[in-house]
Nucleic acid binder design. Structure first.
Lengths: 212, 212
DNA sequence: AGAATCATAATTGTATCCAATACGGCTTTT
DNA sequence: AAAAGCCGTATTGGATACAATTATGATTCT
């Protein structure tokens, strides 16, 4: 989960750049010049470089030695991969989490959904979307699994933003999320897994149609 | 696959540190002081920090802001996660790859096995192990999937080394690898998948028993 | 004596400066 | 005229110096 400690500047910068990317201010393929960005963000190039590296390992930017960094371009194959992996890994996490889920977890998930209902900014929506899913998976206490799932989610956030800028996906997504939350609250494991799978498949589908 | 270009020093250093970790020269939990390492490796702290960050995102190192970095400690739960993920993702990659696999790919895989037969150094063995698996998965041409699988393999390499330092795992592993390669060469998809699953489960098991 | 506090040292993160590398235009050669 | 080689500029990677943060130890107060 994204610990907003931001104690180190590099991480703070990473957050800001991620926001710029997810809001479309920096579009895929666009080169990220270190000097320009560093002066625009009022930071030295050193922590900026660290931030770019973090985002690179996250999948949001591509960086080639001595040639610079650019916002990642996700082709259809990559998006397919992302969702195929999510479709097998996230049900795993959910199934592990459900027996140990607490009311606090459910409350956190619900709060994320409520906040998302009135939120417009894409980067915030992406964050809330992850908050929701994370609240449901975290009780599994499976660090490695959660970590990979988080990576995949962050990457697919970029894909959603690219495809999705105009479409009314948030509304549909909200309904699917509520359904999933309800099943979790009722302790209905098979229902929850089904809702999750359906949700992921629909999201995937919308991205595919949006990308054409 | 690990392109040994080493064009940038940070990557070269990352390779060296990874080697130190996988050979046991740097043991889990051991703190990695920047100044000490930088002088030991005859490099400035700047690329060293980049290397540490890379290794952190790889899972071999944990780093906390202002508190320093240390070699990652993988508990049993993390290892279980790693192999559970590998067990679902790698068959996916293999199944996608098999229809497009070429003789060159198979030759590469075989060469990795042959080289491994006479190799003693753990870090080299880990690298060759990945070379073998990668040769079989790469024809799938699924970048994202391959990338995640590579991450998981690198992380479990650390786990294998920890558990495995003495045991005769390499021999058993070799037999399983040959069996898998044979099935791939024969175009026997179900056999290959079965061999792969069995191989992963055995590796997991050996690590678990070794860790006690 | 024990705990809290302040000062000092050790270590990490950041800024600035220098070196190495890649890109673009030019000349030069065939 | 086309292609290959070379030089100058722009941009990234690395080294050094400085600031911020954390840990440690002594000192003081209760």
């Amino acid at each position: 989960m994204i610990l907003d400690t931001n104690k180190t500047q590099a991480e703070a910068i990473a957050v800001r750049i991620r926001t710029l990317i997810l809001n479309g201010a920096l579009q895929p393929g666009q080169p990220l010049r270190q000097e320009a960005l560093s002066e625009q963000l009022s930071v030295s190039r050193t922590p900026l470089r660290h931030a770019l590296q973090s985002l690179a390992e996250e999948g949001l930017v591509e960086t080639i030695g001595y040639k610079g960094a650019k916002v990642a371009e996700l082709d259809r194959g990559m998006v397919d991969d992302l969702f195929e992996m999510r479709l097998v890994l996230e049900p795993l996490a959910l199934r592990s989490a459900l027996p140990q889920i607490t009311k606090l977890d459910l409350a956190r998930a619900e709060m994320a959904l409520d906040t998302a209902d009135t939120e417009k900014e894409p980067s915030k929506l992406s964050a809330l979307n992850w908050d929701f899913h994370y609240a449901l998976y975290r009780p599994s206490n499976r660090q490695m699994l959660l970590r990979t799932i988080e990576q995949l989610n962050k990457a697919s956030a970029l894909a959603e933003v690219i495809a999705n800028s105009i479409v009314g996906r948030p509304k549909k997504s909200a309904a699917e999320h509520r359904k999933l939350l309800r099943a979790c609250r009722d302790g209905d494991e098979t229902g929850a897994i089904a809702a999750l799978s359906e949700h992921l498949q629909l999201a995937h589908q919308d991205i595919r149609t949006g990308k054409d």
